[in-house]
Structures are given as C-alpha cells and as structure tokens.
Design a protein around this nucleic acid. Structure first.
Lengths: 207, 207
DNA sequence: TGTCATATTGACTAAATAGTCGATTTGACC
DNA sequence: GGTCAAATCGACTATTTAGTCAATATGACA
C-alpha cells in the first residue's frame, strides 16, 4: 500500500538511464570517428560500450538514431568551441576568422574530434547544417558590405568549408606546424577576395 | 591427340576474362560512387554485375582488391580528362588552373564520376596520390618562381584539394551555374596568393 | 527487509554476408 | 561433332549482424 512517488521513481530511472546512454553515445562517437557510420555495427558499439545488446535497443532504435545523437553532440561542441565570443564580434570577417581559427585549434588539440568532423562531413547534411548556416550568414553579410569580391555565397561557403575540412585532414595525416592555422585563415580570406586591410585586420586580436 | 596451342587457349581465355572482369569493375565503380567502400558488399556487386558469386572470386580476391582496381581506373580517368594538353603547359599556374577547370567540368558533365571522386577522397591515399603528387609539383614550382605568396606547399595542396572536393560536392548537391567553374579557379589562385596579373592570365586560353 | 518501476542482461531467431568448391558451360580448335 | 582448358555458375557452410524478449538485477523508499 506504500505511497510510491512515481515521479521520483521516473527521475531516478532517468539518471541511471543517462549514464548508460552516455556510455553508448561515447562508444558510438569513438567508432564513428574512425570509420563511416555505415561500417559501425551495433555489436561493435555494445562491445565498446561494455553493455548488452538489449541495452542498446533500450536507448536507441537503430544505428541511425545513434548517429543522429552523435551528430547533435558534435553540433553542440561547435558552439562550445566558439564560446560566446563569437556572438560578440560584429564584423562578419572577424567572426569567420575567429571560428575558423578555433576549429583548427580544436582539431590540433583533439584528434578524435577532428576525425569525427571529417567523417561526418561525408554524410548528407545533419551536423554540418548548423556550421554551414552560420558560415553562410557571415559570408552573405560580408558580400552585402562589399568586403569580399566573391559574389556567390553558396560557392563561397563551399570554398571555406572545403579548406577547413581538407586542412583538418592534413593535420590528422601529416601533423601540423604552429603557423599553419594563421596561414590557412589568411588563405581563406584571400580566397574570398577580402581587401588587403581586411586580410590583416581579421587576423588581429578578436577583441 | 590434337596438337593444342596452349598459348592460344590462354589468350582466348584472357579475352573472355576481360569482359567479365570489366562487368564486375563497372558494377563496383557504380556502387563505390554511391556509398563508402566499407558498405559495398560482394553480394551487391555480383547482383549489380549480373554474375555469380564464384565469378567474383575468380577475378578478385576481395572487395579491397576491387576497390584498388576502381581506384586505378579512376586515376587513369584523371589523365584522360586532362589529355596531353597539360604536359604542354609550361606555366605551373596555368597547368593548375587548366587541370582544376577540367576536373570541375568533368564533375558537372558526369555526376557518377564526381560521386566516385568524392567518395574516394575519404579513403587514405590510393587514388589521390597521383593527383596530389602532380598538384604538389606544380605548386612547388610556383613557389620557387615566387608566383604565389603561400610558402607551405603541403598546406597549399590541402587548400586546393579542399576547394576542389567541396565544390564538387556542391555541384552534386546543389547543381551549378555556368560561372561557377571560372569563379572557383579565380578563388583558388587568390587563395594561393597569386599576383593579380597571374589571376587574370591563368584563366585565359591555355594555348 | 520487501516492494516495484526501471534498467539491464544475454540467449535466441532471422537475415545478411563471406568464402568454398564440384558441376556445368563456353568456344576455339581439330 | 568431339575435345579440353578456361571461365562461369550457384548451392553450400560458416560467420557476422540485426533485432527480440523473457528473465534478472538495481536501488530508492516505505
């Protein structure tokens, strides 16, 4: 007859649930960093996570759902990497340079993150949407302000993202040197056709 | 007791062999254009090729061997796309612009080729080595000639390849417009830090 | 300590995939 | 038409993977 607090019960469950879910999510993140999601099996995930197969299905319906969760977490990491400094920058080219620099620095310091970024870039949309959207907004603004000579925002986004992804791959494959980040950003600004002064300014302290 | 010409027999076999091998190779090429090789199964290949499974193993030891053959064929297609015009160009920046233009045009006219290029770019080395090697040679020469401001050839290669691959993806995902090719090449030259006159010259007729 | 909603387990079936191999077909040549 | 080496076939076994579910464990709380 005990009066059981069902709401409390559910909450307890949710906490325990979150721990295991995080275990699976971490394992999935690791595996999806090192191979395409199509090659990530549920068996591999549960073994890496150290849980039973049934537990996987208790938390996720499929590998696709896990992949979506991994993608969402990656998306959040982008915001985390940028902090709130990004929003404070009014200049679109400074915002772009700032984000680009932060992403490269993150890739240098966290190879697994870099690997996940590169792998995720293959699969349609998903995670990249957020990055792409922000990037496009910055570039569109720069175009309106006539700060860049390139006219096609969509093309400009591809160019910037292409450089980002491939340089990230290069860092993974061949390591890096201290100047690479700055040189890459300079190259991005040149690619967009930024003015010489913008090329120098954008790199200067984001403050 | 007929005197059978064994050498002739073998030759006949080789011809028949080549036909079936090509069938399998084409099927593999198609499948590897639309998904990562890790997701291409032997069953899928033999079904697409219309041959029995045993026949696959008669021609290839594994999917990896098939993938290598596909990669080799792709590598040859690069040479074919360029023709021998490339060798005739002495100017490294013109060579680069020429090849870049041809590759983009090919991607526009042959979506399957573009898909295969993009998919192949994920897997380590293999096909890309040839492209990368040529590209690096051109860029190194341009650096020596002080035609570009960028100093790090390896970084420059990543930048050019990144733009190439991502713009190719863009063409696949969002189609293209006539000016995209030219604008992209201009952007690549700017990214490398080519002089204004080189930016204009390199685009002009390759003759 | 017993209760019970929640979470976890792992054995199980079904399906997909890899790889093998003896039987059969093919086709140029005699 | 018969021969035979090469090529092809497809049924077969073994292994991997997906997905299910009844049984069990967990742990806060009465």
């Amino acid at each position: 007859m005990a009066k059981v607090d069902l709401a409390r019960r559910a909450e307890i469950g949710r906490e325990k649930r979150e721990k295991t879910r995080a275990l699976i999510l971490d394992a999935g993140t690791m595996l999806m960093a090192e191979r395409p999601r199509e090659a990530v099996t549920i068996d591999a995930v549960v073994e890496a996570a150290g849980v039973a197969k049934g537990t996987f299905y208790y938390h996720f319906q499929s590998i696709d759902e896990l992949a979506a969760a991994v993608g969402e977490k990656l998306g959040e990491s982008f915001d985390a990497v940028l902090g709130d400094a990004r929003r404070a920058l009014e200049d679109p080219l400074k915002r772009l340079s700032f984000a680009f620099t932060k992403f490269l620095e993150k890739a240098i310091s966290d190879a697994n993150w870099a690997r996940l970024v590169v792998q995720s870039s293959q699969s349609r949309g998903e995670y990249a949407r957020g990055v792409r959207t922000n990037l496009k907004a910055d570039i569109a603004q720069a175009i309106v302000q006539e700060r860049v000579s390139i006219r096609d925002a969509e093309l400009a986004v591809d160019i910037v993202m292409g450089i980002w992804l491939q340089v990230t791959r290069g860092i993974l494959d061949r390591g890096t040197r201290p100047e690479v980040t700055q040189q890459t950003v300079e190259s991005v600004l040149r690619a967009l056709g930024a003015s010489r002064s913008d090329q120098e300014n954008a790199w200067k302290k984001w403050s």
